[in-house]
Design a protein around this nucleic acid. Structure first.
Length: 726
DNA sequence: AATGGGACGCTAGG
DNA sequence: CCTAGCGTCCC
């Protein structure tokens, strides 16, 4: 390390200033306003005014923190002391961390607004592991350091020194990637913030190796059903800690420090439970490695064609007005088209359409057992009246506009890029989920809009609207998608060892669902219609998902009797699949939980419920979990493997954009495309065997790769086989 | 007289 | 089966 790199006098001074309670006066006139009166902010975060209002509070907490005798302010140390501090950090046995936000809260506080501006990081360094000291006080050899962590405004960044502070950066790296035990509640948020603040001077690859223990993750692994909300809840559940009340100033600081001590104890408690439940490997080898992967994903900016989105929004708005008018005409009255209640009144009380189709069973709403107006219901009614078709089209357009056009626009605010938030612990099955926007739910198929034109010459114009096409790679880069083909079905074959199902996947060429349809309908493969194939696909997944006949008939558009026949004949053809389902249910009854292929666990407290429907639901959850959870395991392992390969290579640069459960989307430099595609494909397919986790699938995995200059126009990529020639 | 939270309905994805 | 998200409706 070079000393001169760190000796930045002017940066020191600015940091000194912001550390105290001054900075808002000049820039922000409304400093005295009570921040509490200014209601909750939307997730899109800070308009300038909201930052101004919280500023005063922040300065005070920072001041209280750094004036607390036990806390050393890293920014205030001279270069010599900083070097010593780096050494102390290296020597420490345990580091316990929390971010401190500008509004005076920390990661240990209950409510967390999204994209909260961060101001620093408090580190508790423990030099011995003894728990002999009282639970919430420091040991004799423990010390506390405060690290400033703030976005430098763009205007200040351009002048003279581009970096916030390189010494602090290196201290952070020491803290985050050290070999000792590091504990942080919501570690992903910390990593993302660090990557954002040091966007220019810290490559995302640097956080790849870091292994930060996170009680939110461990608690979730122990019981994914528990809505593992905040730190306090976890303490109440796993430790016995007196309830704390919100405090201010010096008292608040003591509370934070004691919070860190408790965080350490909580972590130890959860770790020992993970070990005794056989979840340690999964935690350490998979879930902890996911944290830097997700942090890097969140810190990446995905470029979006904002202008095109705005145009589309207007277009869809016009289309909706047209359809609304048509709906009113067809109904013979004005009503709120978006309201299912009002639509129900029109369809079933005014028009009495249900009386004209007594041969078909119209679906009911789940909770109140009323006539449903869902897609399945409207499809059954569409030949009786023009209204259902109009509503169906209206709903399609409305969904696209509200969620995927306006919704994404509102995630962009003043920017022309987005970054989703990825959640590791919000799905019981072990899958990850995305928010703001939900990248995993963007429509796969484009929507055709016929635009009425009142221009002489042409009558109609057809426009296609495709939200995925709005996502554009950076200049000189390309999107690459890698899709695990039929993972869940392959896993079903593996889990059941059904010989017929296995055979389908061992013969490499053919289309799986075509083969399936031919096997099950008893016709030659070239006689399988596309309808048969589609049916086969839906039956398979309804079996996996445990859907009943009712649901299947709705999806398939056939009678429940027909759906039952389809399902039965499938289970007759693949006897061992049925055996697997029964085995799984039996096992869940016996032990009260089920396990995925990598040992992920789901407790099923209702599995022995006296209530039939509740018990049945738990049984479906059991079967579904084993398949869906195992697929999640594989996909997450793929993300980790590829992430580690890229970050330990000096030549690779591809970045993960999104995970769509069985598909990974990357942004790759144009010139690296083919090489990276081959690497991704072979890495993913190699997951058939994961020795250290005891995974050895009886079926091969197949990965399809495609690429494109927008997410809406991806085309299949042919990768030469990567077998080394003998 | 608003208004914000919760229940419900629907639908995009897997 | 399990997500997120948008929309009513009612208290």
């Amino acid at each position: 390390m070079k000393a001169e790199e760190h000796c930045n006098e002017s940066a020191e001074k600015t940091s000194k200033q912001t550390a105290f309670c001054k900075p808002c006066k000049r820039q922000w006139a409304k400093c005295g306003t009570d921040p509490a009166k200014n209601g909750p902010k939307s997730f899109h975060g800070g308009a300038n005014t909201s930052e101004a209002l919280t500023q005063s509070q922040d300065g005070c907490l920072t001041a209280s923190l750094t004036s607390e005798p036990r806390v050393k302010d890293f920014g205030q140390l001279n270069p010599d002391e900083k070097m010593k501090m780096l050494e102390t950090t290296r020597q420490a046995k345990v580091l316990v961390l929390t971010m401190v936000y500008r509004d005076g809260t920390t990661q240990l506080d209950p409510e967390q607004k999204l994209t909260l501006p961060v101001c620093g990081l408090l580190v508790l360094m423990k030099s011995d592991l003894s728990c002999g000291t009282p639970e919430d006080s420091l040991g004799p050899n423990d010390s506390l350091v405060y690290l400033k962590l703030e976005h430098t405004p763009a205007w200040a960044q351009q002048q003279t020194h581009p970096s916030p502070e390189l010494f602090t950066r290196d201290m952070l790296l020491q803290v985050l990637t050290g070999s000792q035990l590091v504990v942080c509640y919501k570690a992903k948020d910390l990593l993302r913030s660090v990557l954002q603040v040091y966007r220019r001077e810290l490559n995302w690859k640097r956080v790849a190796g870091c292994h930060i223990q996170d009680p939110q993750v461990s608690a979730w692994l122990l019981d994914p059903t528990d809505p593992s909300s905040c730190f306090q809840d976890l303490l109440n559940k796993h430790c016995r800690r007196p309830h704390t009340t919100p405090a201010l100033g010096a008292q608040k600081v003591s509370q934070i420090i004691s919070g860190l001590c408790w965080l350490y104890r909580l972590n130890m408690k959860l770790c020992s439970q993970l070990q005794s439940q056989g979840l340690w490997k999964l935690y350490s080898d998979m879930e902890l490695n996911m944290i830097p992967v997700l942090a890097a994903m969140e810190s990446h900016r995905i470029h979006v064609d904002k202008e095109a989105l705005k145009k589309t929004s207007d277009l869809l708005g016009t289309k909706m007005k047209q359809l609304e008018k048509e709906a009113h005409q067809a109904a013979g009255q004005i009503f709120l088209v978006t309201s299912s209640t009002q639509l129900r009144t029109v369809l079933f009380e005014k028009l009495r359409l249900h009386e004209r189709c007594e041969n078909k069973k119209l679906p009911k709403t789940i909770n109140k057992q009323q006539q449903s107006t869902s897609e399945a219901a409207l499809l059954l009614l569409q030949d009786l009246h023009p209204l259902p078709k109009i509503i169906l089209e209206y709903r399609q357009v409305h969904k696209i506009k509200s969620t995927f056009v306006d919704g994404i626009l509102s995630c962009m605010m003043c920017k022309n890029y987005i970054s989703s938030t990825w959640h590791q612990t919000s799905a019981v099955t072990g899958r990850i989920s995305a928010k703001h926007p939900n990248f995993q739910a963007l429509p796969r198929q484009p929507l055709q809009i016929t635009k009425k034109q009142y221009v002489q010459g042409k009558e109609e114009e057809v426009v296609t609207v495709h939200p995925r096409a709005m996502f554009i790679p950076h200049e000189g880069w390309t999107f690459l998608a890698a899709d695990f083909c039929q993972v869940e079905l392959r896993l079903l074959a593996h889990l059941s060892s059904d010989p017929e199902l296995l055979r389908i996947f061992t013969s490499p060429q053919a289309d799986v669902f075509t083969m399936l349809a031919s096997q099950w309908k008893g016709v030659r493969e070239d006689e399988v219609t596309s309808e048969d194939r589609e049916h086969a696909k839906r039956i398979v997944y309804s079996v996996v998902y445990g859907a009943g006949r009712e649901r299947l008939s709705g999806i398939l558009g056939v009678s429940t009797e027909q759906a039952r026949l389809f399902q039965d004949s499938f289970l007759q053809t693949y006897r061992d699949v049925q055996a697997f389902i029964q085995r799984t249910i039996q096992q869940s009854h016996k032990q009260g939980y089920v396990l995925s292929i990598m040992g992920r666990r789901r407790n099923l407290p209702n599995i022995n419920s006296p209530d039939w429907s509740i018990r049945m639901q738990a049984e479906r959850q059991a079967v579904n979990f084993v398949v869906q959870g195992s697929a999640a395991d594989l996909c997450k392992m793929a993300m980790i493997r590829i992430f580690n390969l890229v970050s330990s290579s000096s030549s690779l640069s591809a970045r993960l954009i999104a995970q769509l459960h069985d598909e990974l989307l990357y942004e790759v430099e144009d010139s690296h495309l083919e090489q990276f595609a081959a690497l991704v494909k072979s890495t993913m397919e190699s997951l058939q065997r994961i020795d250290h986790l005891g995974v050895h699938l009886k079926v091969p995995l197949k990965v399809a790769v495609s690429s494109g200059k927008s997410w809406g126009s991806m085309s299949e990529l042919n990768i030469p086989l990567t077998f080394p020639s003998p």
